[in-house]
Design a protein around this nucleic acid. Structure first.
Lengths: 209, 209
DNA sequence: TCGACAACTGACCGTCGGGTCATTAACTAG
DNA sequence: CTAGTTAATGACCCGACGGTCAGTTGTCGA
């Protein structure tokens, strides 16, 4: 909750403050149950003021995605481009980074959840996310796999055509944390390690391909 | 939409009809946007009648989970118990069954989505789902892996401690279909095959454990 | 010091939808 | 046929909340 004299005029700072308040409110209540009034109160501002800066609740949410999620993937891309070691290690790094930034971080996990929950209704937002985040992420993975196959580190296979399958268990982890953590806490560390081990080595003792 | 004379009295059939109407309404609108009035209309009944059989919207949803999801897992368990072939083939069967019943089926995928979206708010429902479905499913997988390791088919490893990681990519597929299918259709068949191949063989060309 | 501009406020409006209950009418036992 | 029972109805109630806007006040240039 931002403090200050009432009716203080701070046009430049308001958008960021309101955005932060909205992140907190969404994280606590989810999108559907988030109240504009409550966002306003958290930001130390009247309800009307929120509408001076954002036209609708949806617009606030889109601003959050742009502001908070994109950097995580940008960071991963950067890491990828200047990587020197093995591709398997890079994959481990990227996935570990992803768990830290998206699954264990309450704010971002909530953004993910909202996207899942309301993605159908805000198809514009889903399209934005797909275009700006997923396509790039997938391309990065494809490139990583290609290099790995070239160097003989990775075998070729169907997974190279659907590279998101490598990251998929992370989504399961996020969902578990969102939905069932109150009943049974997920051991994220152990899950991450099982995830990495499985996608690298598989379950069979004598792989035949 | 169920037809019939107005005010026809059919106490016995109503609950099932209302449930089916609710499944349709939820699948189309999601839980938050489903209207009781609309469920009633679909069932060919007045709004008040719905409340004769179910006290709240939540109760309707819980009834749906009990009625529609449990059978899918019961079937998998049954398959598992009388299985004669290899454990790898059983795993393939179960996961394929799961894709058919949960990911490609609109009704059930929507139930999954609702559980994810509203699971935090209906903690009773999340607890029910965890207790009745997840614990059993995980136990089944553990048993499957144990047998596989014993017979030398599977290697031992962390994934045996977090067996859900084997199924996790299916959840990703469900979410993709729910959220991004309008932007880019998921090739479920190919995804399933990539999933199976990856969890069995892994990505490395020379697994070292 | 004093307009005038624009940031800010919050009471108010309209809508929506979950849930209620007095009324109606289908069925049934006698 | 009738009276009693109870399934079914839908108009109504009411709280919630997104969004508006006339009025208020801080700020700044002249």
């Amino acid at each position: 909750m931002v403090k200050g004299k009432p009716r203080e005029r701070r046009k430049d700072d308001r958008p960021a403050e309101i955005l932060q308040a909205a992140v907190d409110e969404f994280a606590e209540k989810g999108f559907a149950n988030a109240k504009i009034q409550s966002i306003a109160t958290r930001a130390g501002v009247a309800k009307g003021t929120v509408y001076l800066y954002y036209t609708t609740k949806e617009e606030i949410f889109e601003a959050i995605v742009r502001d908070r999620i994109q950097p995580v993937f940008a960071m991963a891309s950067a890491m990828s481009e200047q990587w020197q070691g093995s591709q398997a290690d890079l994959l481990r790094q990227i996935i570990t980074h992803f768990y830290g930034q998206m699954i264990e971080n309450d704010e971002r996990r909530m953004i993910l959840k909202t996207l899942i929950s309301e993605g159908e209704r805000f198809s514009e937002l889903a399209a934005f996310y797909h275009r700006e985040i997923l396509v790039g992420g997938r391309k990065m993975l494809r490139e990583l796999i290609r290099k790995g196959i070239e160097s003989g580190e990775f075998r070729d296979g169907l997974y190279a055509k659907e590279p998101m399958v490598l990251v998929a268990p992370a989504i399961h982890a996020a969902i578990w944390k969102m939905t069932f953590d109150s009943v049974e806490k997920l051991n994220t560390r152990r899950w991450l390690e099982a995830h990495l081990e499985l996608i690298l080595h598989g379950a069979l003792s004598k792989p035949s391909i």
